[in-house]
């Protein structure tokens, strides 16, 4: 590869904080990597672990889930559940050999446009380092 590998990162953003934060980063003209495919969900607690597995199956090189800071959830406690769930998911993925850094979670509030930039830059950087994800990508096996 002559060009540098451009990873494909799927980001699940909560409607109330992180999506607004990403929006703010955009309107404030903060530059950040463009490798992100954003999927807006109502709450980080709505993200089903299967979404993450499926994203990896369908060609994601990295996954980011971002929600409100603990205590700021629009639905009071959705992000607390998400935190438990994805902390374990992270452990499980690493345990079967998914490189650390492919799966990420962050708290970004509506006013943290600058933090959003840092988070994205970090996630994309880590995905670049890990290279293309091919462990259990669908990739037309035995077609």
């Amino acid at each position: 590869m002559s060009e540098q590998f451009q990873p494909n990162v799927v980001a699940f953003l909560c409607n109330w904080c992180s999506y607004a934060g990403a929006d703010l980063a955009g309107t404030s003209r903060i530059k950040y990597p463009h490798n992100l495919n954003v999927i807006r969900v109502m709450c980080s607690g709505r993200v089903n672990p299967l979404f993450v597995i499926n994203a990896f199956q369908q060609g994601a090189d990295g996954v980011l889930i971002s929600g409100c800071h603990p205590g700021d959830c629009h639905y009071m406690e959705g992000n607390f559940y998400a935190r438990r769930r994805f902390s374990l998911m992270n452990e499980l993925l690493e345990y079967v050999g998914v490189e650390p850094g492919r799966f990420n979670m962050s708290w970004v509030s509506a006013s943290e446009g600058a933090k959003w930039k840092d988070v994205v830059a970090g996630v994309v950087e880590k995905a670049k380092e890990a290279g293309p994800f091919d462990q259990f990508r669908r990739n037309k096996i035995n077609w």
């Binding site: 607390f80 935190r83 438990r84 902390s87 992270n90 990420n104 979670m105 988070v119």
Partner: peptide, 8 residues
């Protein structure tokens, strides 16, 4: 206060 050291 669940652990959250993996969260960015």
């Amino acid at each position: 206060n669940d652990k959250e050291d993996f969260i960015l």
